[in-house]
Amino acid sequence: MKEERKKIILILLISIFMLSFCLLPVIYMVIISLSKNPDFLSAEKTLRFTLKNYFDVLSVRSLHFTDYLKNSIAVSTISAALSVFIAALAAYSITRLNLPGKVILLFFVLVVSMFPQISLVGWLFKLMAELGWINTYPALILPYIGWILPLSLWILVSYFSQLPKELDKQALIDGCSRWQILFKVLFPVALPGLFSTFLLAFIFAFNEFMFALMLTADHKARTIPVGIALFQGLHGEIPWGNIMSAATIATLPVIILTIVFQKRIVQGLTRGAVKG
């Protein structure tokens, strides 16, 4: 009984630590974003609330925050959707058709996913400069697709291999073509798996930093993480209120996605890592 009590207290303490550890910086971000004086923690000042930071970042065009947000959403959505589609075709081939050398292929893809981004970005920069694509969406979307594909493939291979094989066998006997099977039989059944893969792919693209830093130049293509990282005040002093409200707006969608689809995200993450 005594041990049981000790255990409960221990769990409680760790939970409190865990919660404050994970949430304190986020709460801090939100408070600063709502403050008129981000320096209120320095001596003898009281916090005054305002919504002006939010109005600023959403309405002052020269801050370009809305452009960054638009770029991020467009680039991440397109990259995630295309990579899930391409990975689904490949996963179908690996799990359902007799693809020779599929073990080697999965091995290759896994190793590729561990390549440091810095070992690609210099050459990609030269390529995109050659093509005149620096600071455009394709300069980000094309490398992003390559970058997210390994993760998408691994999750989908693991997902597809759990779906019963009889499903498409029957359709094949009924005289459907492979494409018909894929679109009419497999995809509808696999929709939850495709969706959670899309979510993870979207979050990965949305959070990407180095490619976006190197391959974009200004608000025409720059994404939110880079925009916020390089966000500087007009008069030297760092505009923390604006930065934190921009950060809050940018992280809100991701946090909501995470809360709503928590189970799917965890499933996808563990499929991609543990089963690897």
Partner: peptide, 12 residues
């Protein structure tokens, strides 16, 4: 709550 730090972009 534990997932939230993971979801926020590292740069942010």
């Amino acid at each position: 709550c534990v997932l939230i730090p993971w979801a926020i972009p590292a740069a942010i």
